[in-house]
Design a protein around this nucleic acid. Structure first.
Lengths: 149, 149
DNA sequence: GTCATTTACATAGCTTGCTATCTAAATACA
DNA sequence: TGTATTTAGATAGCAAGCTATGTAAATGAC
């Protein structure tokens, strides 16, 4: 093993990301929800409606991924997807009462996981971590945007 | 949006992880390789053979995930999977010459991505980041292990 | 006003992750 | 020795990520 994973930003960040998804999955599955639903739930938790495009941007996933996630959420009675009267190409997505009812429990799960991780860190370390990971995201988003050109 | 993603360890870490995978994918696809191959390639790059169990542990994925990845790699001529003469339950996995030939390019890709990200950070920030993410991983692995009980 | 381009979403097909469960070999122990 | 347990992989089935491509509506250029 020439390259070692202990010095690899990619390996470590990816592993941490997957472990966080597993943990969130454990909290959400009793609610009939899963991690990919989170950005949609949080964006629409005030009962508003957004286009698929807006949700795609907030979630940081590709458009086709969001279409698939929303299709499953509609199938499971979590969202309604209606034509946008202002633009025949787009749709407006809103949470159903079933999903809105679950919001408090979702918020509690998100808070609990954040706390589980952050309580290991001092306040200074927390802001270091947030600052560093956001800078890493910024570099990678630049690369990702450039690749699309 | 009651909870915001800017203060969510999960959202940010997961996003960074996915952006890193996308970047690695861009480097590896011209080689006929993909991100999930990396832990296998790095573990066996000296021509040695390891059991599937050992590879599973190094990659940090579940056993069934590794079986699927190795099956695809075998299909694509990247690994050989042979019965372990020492234990009839297990198998020994080794890279083929085709895969071994690609190792230098794989190492270059890994180094380039690491450098792309890390050159944005001061040496002190780099060690901060590694220290913090490893502590986060440690907490989550404890949770993950406990859930299996 | 018409045609080309752009935009929003849908669809197809793949990989990679997961859980749950099955089989067969090895190990433990009574 | 013989049965029970544990362990290593395989298999099935699903979710969620991706790329590439198709379709229909909106926009823009003339």
């Amino acid at each position: 093993m020439t390259l070692n994973r202990d010095g690899s930003v990619g390996y470590l960040t990816n592993l941490a990301g997957r472990l966080l998804v597993r943990e969130l999955e454990r909290h959400l599955s009793p609610l009939g929800l899963s991690p990919a639903h989170m950005p949609v739930l949080l964006a629409l938790d005030d009962g508003s409606a957004l286009t698929q495009k807006a949700l795609t941007e907030r979630a940081g996933v590709k458009q086709a991924t969001m279409t698939a996630t929303l299709t499953r959420m509609e199938r499971d009675g979590l969202v309604t997807i209606l034509p946008n009267p202002e633009d025949g190409r787009s749709t407006l997505v809103a949470l159903t009462p079933l999903a809105l009812d679950k919001i408090p429990a979702v918020a509690a799960a998100a808070t609990a996981i954040n706390a589980l991780v952050l309580e290991q860190l001092t306040p200074e370390e927390r802001s270091q971590f947030f600052g560093l990971i956001k800078r890493i995201i910024a570099v990678l988003e630049t690369q990702d945007g450039a690749a699309r050109t």
